[in-house]
């Protein structure tokens, strides 16, 4: 990976930061922050589901662990928010490694893997709904206290900037995947596990590494969510909604691409918001739109929005790699 590889993530960060500081209204700024959080969750999902071909239906397990960890540490132990963030990411990654160890050891793939991850997330949801440490059904509230160390800002643009920087870091991580041996091995496993094994790939270890990275990234989204709303309960943390939004954004944006999850999150949440405004706030109408978009994407643009761009520009290029691939995909 060279400095040039980081150019696109850097441009994305600059554009998003410029947007955050362009004088957006409070509502729009909140939407931008929420887009960044969902993007991070989806970027995490994309590492495992997009690059590794292992579709999880339970990324809530990591999101929720990140969210709960930081709030519990702050409220009951008085740890500062940044340490809480690091702990949340690490614990989320550890939960990923644990679920990965159990699933991959038993060779779970495809729908079996999706189901087992869903089961883990649901168990965590039910447990956290009744356990005293997670505040039971009441959840955990973090008292309002502005300050950099508390990761709470009177001027919400600063929080947006921090979320954007993390999204940028996740973009860089994805770029590294595209440029490294680990990433090449992960993609090889997605394409053909047996062939990868024959070429010396330790399938178990690569998958375990992928789910750990993926879980850490999604846990970071959970930490930011908790930090943004200063509240978390079992449904928000471990509910299926976040598992679904993470995979929606990644699939709609483009599986296994660097910008896919970000583009997907922005497109989905943006459209959802517009629908809510137009319909005058009918509850759940944005979910209806999400479903329709997913169906349209899978039917007409199976490669996601990112492949749309390649399809449009591919015609004008010489017969390069992308042009050929989109022909085959079509």
């Amino acid at each position: 990976m060279s400095a040039r590889d980081l150019l696109l993530p850097l441009i994305a960060v600059l554009v998003l930061a410029g947007l955050a500081f362009s004088g957006l209204s409070g509502t729009l700024l909140n939407l931008l922050i929420f887009m960044m959080i969902i993007s991070l969750a989806a970027q995490g999902w994309n590492i495992l589901g997009g690059f590794g071909g292992l579709s999880s239906f339970g990324h809530a397990a990591f999101f929720g662990t990140g969210a709960y960890t930081t709030l519990i540490l702050q409220t009951s132990l008085g740890v500062n928010a940044w340490a809480g963030l690091v702990a949340g990411v690490l614990l989320g990654a550890a939960v990923g490694a644990g679920i990965g160890f159990l699933s991959f050891r038993s060779g779970l793939k495809g729908s079996y893997f999706a189901l087992i991850t869903l089961a883990f997330a649901e168990v965590l949801r039910i447990a956290s709904n009744s356990a005293p440490i997670t505040g039971g059904a009441a959840g955990i509230l973090l008292p309002l206290d502005y300050g950099f160390l508390n990761l709470q800002f009177d001027d919400r643009r600063w929080f947006a900037l921090i979320a954007i920087l993390f999204v940028g870091a996740a973009l860089a991580l994805t770029r590294w995947l595209e440029r490294s041996r680990f990433g090449a091995y992960l993609i090889a496993i997605r394409e053909n596990e047996q062939a990868a094994q024959a070429l010396g790939v330790d399938v178990f270890r690569v998958k375990l590494g992928a789910i750990t990275l993926s879980a850490g990234c999604t846990a970071l989204a959970g930490v930011l969510y908790a930090q943004n709303y200063l509240f978390v309960d079992a449904h928000v943390a471990y509910g299926p909604w976040i598992s679904i939004e993470a995979l929606f954004a990644a699939i709609v944006g483009g599986l296994g691409t660097m910008f896919g999850p970000l583009v997907g999150a922005v497109a989905l949440l943006g459209l959802g918001e517009i629908t809510k405004m137009v319909s005058g706030g009918v509850p759940g109408v944005d979910l209806l739109v999400f479903g329709a978009i997913l169906i349209l994407t899978v039917a007409f643009v199976p490669g996601g929005l990112m492949s749309l761009r390649q399809r449009l520009t591919g015609r004008r290029r010489p017969r390069g790699e992308t042009a050929l691939r989109s022909e085959e995909g079509a």
Partner: peptide
């Protein structure tokens, strides 16, 4: 044959 179907020939060989 078990190619990594979605990858280019060069990328396939590079995995090895």
């Amino acid at each position: 044959v078990q190619p990594f179907a979605g990858l280019t020939v060069r990328e396939n060989i590079a995995v090895g």
